[in-house]
Each structure stands twice: as C-alpha cells, then as structure tokens.
Design a binder for these strands. Structure first.
Lengths: 178, 178
DNA sequence: CAATTTAAAGACCGATTGGTCTATATATCG
DNA sequence: CGATATATAGACCAATCGGTCTTTAAATTG
C-alpha cells in the first residue's frame, strides 16, 4: 500500500512492489494476480481504514460536534507538514485513474458517499440537539465539509503549517455551529 | 497541454505528445528539450490561464460578491458532469508530482497562493462594504474557499450533477455573506 | 533422514519507455 | 534554377515496463 501511496499507480514499478511486499516476482503474481489487482487491494484497504476511522470519530455514541472536531483535526494532522506532503492514496488515485478506470471510479465515488453519509449523520444529530446555526442544512453542510477536507489533501501537498490548517478548519466549523 | 491534462505526467507517453503537438520526434525535442520541460511549459500555461480567469472574475472593478459568485460558478461548471470527470491538470499534478518534483512543487504552491490572494482581496472589499456576516475573516474565509474549490475538483472526478454542486457552493457562500 | 511441497531468485520475454540520429523531402533564398 | 537551410518520417538505441518460467534453495511432512 505504501508504495502506491507515495508514487501513484503509474509511478510505482514492479521492483518497488517487490521491495515493499518483500516477495519474489513469482510469489507476488501467484498471490495477487497482476499489478492492477494488487493496486485495487491496496486501495480497498486504504478506504477500509479511512472508513473505520470515521466510524470511530463520528460514532453516534459520541457528541456530534466533538466527533466533527476530531474528524477535522485528523484531516488537519494528515494534511500538514511532512504528512501533508506525503499525500493521500485515495485523492491521488481519484485524479490519476478515476476517470478512466471504472473499478477505481466506483471505489472513489463510494468512499465520498460513505464520508458524506457519516458527516451528514453527525450534523443531523447536532441539529436536533440545537447545536447548529440557523439555516444550516446537514446534507448540504456535509457536502461542503467533504469538499473541504479533500481540498485540504490537495493543498496539503504544499506542506502547510499545522496551526494554519487547524485555524482554517476551526473557522469553517464555526460557521456551522451556534 | 491536453495530453498531460487527461492522462497525467507518467501516463502520457511520447507518441501521445507527438499526436497532440503534430510534431515529429526530432522537432519536438529541438523545440522543447525533453518531456519534463514540455510538461513544465504546459503546466505554466495552465496556471497562467487559471490566474488570468481569476483576475477577470475577481477584478477589483467588479462587485466583490458578484466576482466570488462567478468564481465559484466557474468551478462548479468545471467540476460537474463530463468536465468534472476530465479533471484538473493542476490538482492531478499536485498529487502526482508536487511532493517529489521541486519545480512542480513551487508552481503548485504559487498557484494556491495566487488564488488565495485574489479571493482574500475580494472578501476584504466585501467586508469593507459591509457585505460579510459577523465574524468572517477575509483571510481565513479565503483559505476555506481555496480548499473548497480544490476539493470540488477531487469530488468532481465522480462527475456529480451540476445543480447539486452549485447548491453546495451557494450554501457555503451563504455562510459568509450578511 | 528422505520425500515432497513451497517459495525465492533471477533469467528471460515482447512491448514500450524517453531520447538520438540519419536519411529524405520540403521550403527558402540568392 | 540551383544551393542551402529546415523540418519531416522513422530507424534505432539502451533501459525499463509488466509478466512468465525455470532453476535452485528452504521448509514441511512422513
């Protein structure tokens, strides 16, 4: 996963994968089929990790606003400094392959839907608790937040300061809460 | 430019460039040096076009809120449906190369700075005209908008409906205006 | 220990990569 | 027209691509 993560699909050559998996050429092909299948597996794992993280951060047992703050703080952390420069396998894949590779396209779209659903849910709970500012629609605010965090990943490639990104995220959430 | 745009740097092979430029192999190398130099030239042109567009949309002679609406509408248009699926050379390049290629990294960072400066300026003018909601800081709202539109480019890879994206952009701007 | 399965190492394959160079045709110009 | 500069087409290059296959070493099992 790490190999594709830091170099992308086309940028990752077979020797990179052998080094990363510590497998021989033959064993790798026996285990995973071909490069594309292996990539899909790596992408699936990356997505599963991200969804699992959101399920924790935005769990319904938690205070919704705390969850959203944790969710945003996580993205701030992952998109600042060296972590930001490392980038995001999902966003890189979306830009590199989503338009041409249907298998990839479905996974990327599915991830955005999953994120939007969880954020919408948290915002809905916040709204019924009377914690949202007037006129804030959970579903549309969720779409905004999804775009925002994915944009963070893009801008994060320039390795911005953690404090600045956190302040930006805070400022955005502030526009939604009462 | 179009070749790199739709296939990325690594994904664009020399025959693609020959077809796109209608040049022979020798002439292309005589004119541009190598693939990397040609790519940098394409990227520079893409960035110059984008900055020129922002200079028009967000011109100081224009009503700032109208400018911001035009700016957002442009991004909505370019990130919906088939245009969205086509993607963005700058964002794709940021994810693919910005971390490893210093020449590219500088250009990407420079573009985000240029966008942020122009959006900040428009928001500042809106603020002095009393058009912004209470507590909205132009500089931090500009950072939010930059992340948002770049996030639109990412999510746009799943070809969302124009109306939905426009509604989302409207909802975000609504949180900033009085 | 011997027999057998499993995996590693790496030779090998055709195709393609970015890049160079030569031969040929086409303008350009005196 | 004849000489010269220019750009074309495409042969050619070493290196690398993803992928296969054989040979050898290491476990595993009886």
């Amino acid at each position: 996963m790490g190999a594709f993560w830091s170099r992308g699909y086309h940028g990752t050559a077979l020797p990179d994968l052998l080094r990363a998996t510590k497998l021989s050429r033959g064993s790798l092909y026996a285990a995973f089929g071909d490069k594309h299948s292996l990539f899909l597996l790596a992408l699936d794992r990356y997505i599963a990790d991200a969804v699992a993280r959101m399920d924790i951060e935005l769990a319904s047992s938690r205070e919704p606003l705390d969850g959203l703050r944790a969710f945003l703080a996580g993205y701030v952390d992952r998109t600042s400094g060296a972590s930001g420069r490392r980038g995001c396998l999902l966003v890189a894949t979306a830009m590199e392959l989503a338009g041409q590779d249907a298998e990839v396209g479905r996974r990327v779209a599915g991830f955005f839907k999953a994120m939007e659903a969880r954020v919408t849910d948290a915002l809905s709970r916040a709204k019924t608790a009377g914690q949202l500012a007037d006129g804030v629609e959970p579903s549309s605010a969720a779409k905004i937040l999804v775009c925002f965090v994915e944009g963070l990943r893009v801008v994060g490639k320039t390795a911005p300061a953690r404090t600045a990104s956190q302040a930006t995220a805070d400022a955005l959430l502030d526009r939604f809460v009462r």
